Computed example of a mutant assay.
Amino acid sequence: MVLIKDIDIYSLCEHHLVPFFGKVSVGYLPKDRVIGLSKVARIVEIFSRRLQVQERLTRQIAEAIDEAIQPRGVAVIVECVHMCMVMRGAEKVNTRTTTSAMIGIFLTDAKAREEFLMLGHTRSL
């Protein structure tokens, strides 16, 4: 498994036009090709710099890597603080939102999924 974790992201919520920020962990199981580590960070950056919702961001990262190198599987975890939760509405300062996307072997093989989740889950910002 190739795992790149704790990639910093900064984005803007498309619903409230306020920032959200956090960390991304990306794992994939290569088949025939690999991708440069910095390219994974760039893919994360490309999608996070748009007006965005975290759920879609997570899925877009996984799908872009899957399309680019067609690995055996891709897994992505995104953990963020949303300023719309901190500054307005519920005003919950310590709330974090975690989303995940799994493609390929990470959906069908519990051991692969478990390994990624154990190694890749970001525990703090």
Rank of each mutant, 00 (worst) to 15 (best):
G89E: 02
R88G: 02
H82A: 05
E115R: 09
L3W: 03
A75H: 12
A75Q: 14
E63Q: 09
V78W: 05
R113M: 04
R56M: 03
G27A: 09
I43P: 05
A62G: 04
Y28P: 06
T58I: 04
A101R: 03
L125A: 00
E55Y: 08
K5R: 15
I46R: 13
I43C: 11
L12I: 13
Q60H: 06
I77L: 13
R42V: 11
G89I: 04
C80N: 14
R56Y: 04
V18T: 13
L17Y: 12
I105Y: 02
Q52F: 10
V86Y: 11
R50T: 03
G36P: 07
R113N: 06
G36W: 14
L107P: 05
I69L: 11
Q60K: 15
I9S: 01
H16Y: 09
E79Q: 12
I4C: 05
A41Q: 15
M85K: 11
M118K: 15
I46Q: 12
T122C: 04
S48W: 06
E79N: 08
A41H: 10
I103G: 00
A75K: 06
P30S: 01
V78P: 08
E115C: 06
G27E: 07
I103S: 00
E79I: 10
L57C: 09
S48P: 07
L57I: 14
G36L: 08
M118V: 08
K39V: 11
E55N: 02
I103R: 09
F20C: 04
N94I: 05
G36C: 12
K39S: 09
I77P: 13
I105G: 00
C80V: 14
I9V: 09
K23Y: 08
Q70K: 15
L12R: 07
L12C: 13
L12D: 14
A75T: 15
T95I: 08
I4E: 05
E114R: 04
M102Y: 11
S48T: 11
R88E: 01
R33T: 15
P30L: 01
S48Q: 10
I69M: 07
S100Q: 00
A112K: 02
L119V: 03
C13M: 07
F21P: 10
R113G: 02
Y10E: 00
C80R: 07
D66R: 12
I65K: 06
L29F: 14
R33W: 15
L3R: 06
L3F: 01
A112V: 09
K111S: 09
M102E: 03
I103D: 00
E114F: 13
Q60L: 10
S48F: 05
A90M: 12
L125R: 00
L107K: 13
C80F: 10
Y10Q: 06
R59P: 08
V74P: 10
L17H: 15
H16R: 06
L119G: 13
L3D: 04
P19I: 11
P71R: 15
V34I: 12
V93F: 06
V81E: 10
I7A: 05
V53G: 00
E114T: 10
C80W: 11
I7V: 10
T99I: 03
T108K: 14
L3G: 00
L17I: 14
T97A: 02
D32I: 13
V40Q: 04
L29Y: 15
I61D: 01
L29Q: 15
H16N: 07
K23M: 09
